[in-house]
Design a protein around this nucleic acid. Sequence first.
DNA 1: GGGATATACATCGTCGTACGATATATTCCA
DNA 2: TGGAATATATCGTACGACGATGTATATCCC
Lengths: 149, 149
Amino acid sequence: MSLDGQGRTLSGAGLDKAQYRAIAAFRYELRRFLSFSEAEAASAGLPAQQHQALLAIAGHPGPEAPTVGALAEQLLIAPHTAAELVSRMVESGLLAKTASTRDRRRMELTLTERSDAILGRLTAAHLEELKILEPALAKALGRLSLGRR
Amino acid sequence: MSLDGQGRTLSGAGLDKAQYRAIAAFRYELRRFLSFSEAEAASAGLPAQQHQALLAIAGHPGPEAPTVGALAEQLLIAPHTAAELVSRMVESGLLAKTASTRDRRRMELTLTERSDAILGRLTAAHLEELKILEPALAKALGRLSLGRR
DNA sequence: GGGATATACATCGTCGTACGATATATTCCA
DNA sequence: TGGAATATATCGTACGACGATGTATATCCC
């Protein structure tokens, strides 16, 4: 590392240490939120990804039930990974999977009573926590000084 | 699900479908960013966690080099998990690990020339991408209607 | 000063889950 | 109708996080 004309600490690629700090802080805030979320899900007996699946299904836009493929798209995972996820969740009574009548390849996904209740509780907890974390998150996001480079 | 007096769609715990949509959209934006980050790191030959380790070390506040424990704290992982991560990174020439002279239990971590250059490139790419993703992220965060419940 | 206790890191076995490759079922269309 | 395309499922593999435990160094306090 070395110093440039303005006294900023530079590393190899010419980046400011203050900027690394800002980005690292942003990623730290993200981790804190994700970590909170994961811990909440775990305390409700769910792996994080299953919680996200419930949320994606409950929050799916439009009136129709989402399919395995739509879930994969929302979770940014491969379709066959979504199929495995769904299969585990059906097995543990968190999802109902019914073949679409119009296209029997498609599997329509809906929450069960139990998972609907679980998701409700988890979401309430998340909204509470986000009230607290949101300012730090927004602040860290704002501090990235995007655009003035 | 049922309809309440104002015509909002309710699920088990009394939560609005629009609210599920907002939170799901927020998590989707988060995943998009994390997925971009992971893909960038992978194209530089790094697992996501190793990229985060580099960033945490480069962005560590204060003049001293961070230790394994400090890294664990920043990454929200167990100390022994950080030790394994560091060990893999030292092995592949991404980190230098030297015992502190004042407390020889502590291992001080610094980037190598190579990893410093890699992190510089990755960070530049992230800042570019964040210019694009930040508005969507901030918007999704703002749409959570925190506080008016 | 020296034994007990605490701290920092390391090692080993295990497990969950995402993936690639591939298979099966259904639909679409020429 | 038959072949290509689409949607989901299955199987083997691998990576990394964890719990339990071990080792080295430091600190406390009588």
